[in-house]
Design a binder for these strands. Sequence first.
RNA 1: GGCGUCUUGGCCGAGUGGCUAGGCAGGGCUCUGCAAAAGCUCGUACAGCGGUUCGAAUCCGCUAGACGCCU
Length: 303
Amino acid sequence: MPKPTLICIVGPTAIGKTTLSIAIANALETEIISADSRQFYKEMSIGTAVPSSEELAAVPHHFIQDRSIFDTYSVGDFERDALRKLEALFSRHEYVVMVGGSGLYVDAVLKGLDHFPKVDPGIREALNEKLDAEGIETLQQELQEADPTHYERVDVQNPHRLIRALEIYRATGKPYSSFLKSATTQRSFNTVLIGLTADREIVYERINKRVDIMIEQGLIEEARTLHQHLDLNALQTVGYRELFAYFDGTLSKDEAISEIKKNTRRFAKRQGTWFRKNPDIQWFDHSTAVATILEFIKTKSAQ
RNA sequence: GGCGUCUUGGCCGAGUGGCUAGGCAGGGCUCUGCAAAAGCUCGUACAGCGGUUCGAAUCCGCUAGACGCCU
């Protein structure tokens, strides 16, 4: 029996991934797994541009708004859940489509992460407090002593990276670097990676337009209901934080909206940086006919 | 037509003879459980031409453009 195929669609935000994924899933009579780190949350819809109810009705979707902003969820959880889901789906489908703009989440499913133990959230809290109270130097110092190998490699200016390495060390007593196996994980499925792209100006235009539409659809009202939860990780999200700043009086409404556009543009740029370095991606212009892409998928998966 | 003021990188903006402000926008990049996060990094521009000077964005002249006032 041949290996099943995971068709993975990536690309910058607002390029049209959702539409393409539905067309392809439809043509192949299969289902869609979302690899979007913000569309998991049921409390957010407008700002995360989740598929519309018509789109969701057209093709079964997974990992769309299936948990709450109050849950803690990370790439590791997603890798595990997605693989389990894929196994189930591949028992009835030859193809499954995965779409998403979250590079790390996509890579977790495709290439796998090394296994790290669960860390008590209190440890991270303590590290964050240490950062606030004593500054980043103290974290750098601690890591230099605990894990000189990783200290050499990590971006020591980046508190997130420092804290991750230290929380593993504090939780296990073993250096973060000792968990890195960097062995390429074998998957039980083949992968066809499709990147959607367009000239920068076009992407930016689409982003600007989409933000205006989100505002028309009631993003401000949606954000207002979530304002009280602004500290939650799920709400460290473009489109919400800027509006929280507006509610708090730091920004005017118009400023908040143009900040959302700017931050979304920057996000798209970072997505580009991430995906560009993956040589396995076959890029298509966003105007490419679905039939052309389907043909590519068929040829590629037959190899 | 006359007189005066102004002209700095995509934008804003400091700088009044030597030591290449700064901000924003934009670009490039990093990345193994906070990832729509977090972090790193990149700009020798002074309207044009000529002159003074060892040396000019800074001084002088002409030209062009903008603005203002006068006739």
